[in-house]
């Protein structure tokens, strides 16, 4: 490069500007994306980890397991509902939710709840997902079954 920067060929300079523009844009996008990702990932915890105190308090997480038979209770007023999620072994915890549960929600079936764990050990859900197709179960719950085998 014998030419000085100032004397750079206009085409080259244009190309350089475009490249700089593209790369700085990309770098910015990546930085923003990583930050947004870190703020918005929800980790999944099975019942034994929630009961064992391994899940963080007051942070948005996902929890799942089986809805314990006979555990669904509704308040006399409003649309608050409460049920127990269990791993059908020794661990279970109470979930509270305000709103209408999905069609597929059933006692004895798997559910996946998004929300946060409160200081009193109960789980305040903002979203409850349930589906009991013969071919479907949330992947988190599939693994739970596997781990229990070993």
């Amino acid at each position: 490069m014998t030419r000085t920067r100032r004397g750079m060929h206009p085409v080259r300079r244009k190309r350089l500007i475009i490249v700089v523009f593209v790369f700085s844009g990309l770098a910015l996008a990546v930085a923003l994306a990583m930050q947004a990702l870190n703020e918005n990932i929800n980790l999944f915890y099975p019942p034994d980890e929630i009961v064992g105190g391994h899940a963080p308090l007051n942070t948005q997480i996902r929890a799942g397991g089986m809805v314990k038979m006979g555990s669904v209770r509704r308040t006399a007023e409003g649309v608050d509902v409460e049920f127990v999620i269990s791993d059908l072994k020794n661990s279970e915890f109470v979930v509270t939710y305000t709103g209408i549960l999905p069609d597929m929600f059933r006692e004895g079936q798997g559910v996946l709840a998004t929300g946060r764990l409160l200081d009193d050990g109960s789980f305040l859900a903002v979203e409850v997902l349930a589906k009991h197709d013969e071919n479907y179960m949330p992947p988190e719950l599939i693994d739970m079954g596997k781990n229990n085998d070993s």
Binding site: D87, L88, K89, E134, N135, M137, G145, N148, D149
Partner: peptide, 15 residues
Amino acid sequence: RDGRLGIDLGVYGAP
């Protein structure tokens, strides 16, 4: 009936 054997077997759905 309550799916306990299913859990031990790692069953995640039927069949």
